[in-house]
Amino acid sequence: MTQIVVNGLLTGGVYALVAVGFSLVWGVMNVVNIAHASYIMLGAYISYWLFHLYGWDPFLSIPVSMAALFVLGYLVASVVLNRVIRYGLVMTLVLTFGVDLILQNAALILWSADYRSITPSYAGASLAVGGVMIPYVRFAVFLLALVLVVLFSLFLSKTRTGNAIQATALNPFAAQLTGVRIDRIYALTYAIGAALAAAAGSMISVIYTIQPQVGNVFLTRAFVITVLGGLGSIPGALLGGVLLGLAESFATVTVGIGWSQAVSFGLLVLILVVRPQGLLGRRFFGGVG
């Protein structure tokens, strides 16, 4: 029983990190960022190659993959996304879908569809606490995900730039009137979203096998979590992620693993009916709720 809770929590941590960047971009920019899947994938490949070619520990390569994807995200937002953002949700959806296709197929051409994995010496080791196994790697990933999420929410609430992002999310027009350059804020937000995806990708490369389509599985999770927790809400993403992890874990042992996705999507439908703005979302947040 405790094992099931631990499994759910640990999985939930990864889910939360995957969802934070996605939720942020959706909440602030009103963009459903399909390319998030590719950013996860690229983060994972950066860690893979640094491990494979130079023997870098995957946890050490997280800053590198975050920085690289921050730059890529900034470029994508400022060069293409900002030009179409005023045409609404559908246009940006199509655009990010296109970016996603380009990146995934580029990865396919460059690195082939081969499954790859990082196996550091400590992979598979775990700590036994009263009969409950806590795998080191997953636990570290969980903690790191928590730290990143907390740091990021501090950044949003305590810094001037963070406040500008929140102001833009609440009302882009009013933010502009107070002197916020919203095109820059959009590019920055998008870049941070990509960097968070990259961090998640780097961690996924340690616990899962990667290939050019690896991000897609996590994208559907991110979507569910974002809606569960509330658009643009950072604590919401964390709560949604952990909730989804626990739901899947419990569904596996009670009704069977074949039903785990039915349970998570059932949860999604239930939230949409009972509390459409999400668990921790606010009605005005993101301008769509």
Binding site: T11, Y208, V217, T252, I257, G258
Partner: peptide, 17 residues
Amino acid sequence: FARYPADTTDVSSLLAA
């Protein structure tokens, strides 16, 4: 005997069972 979704990324609870 279990069939799991093809895109499953975590089987820890399944293995515990």
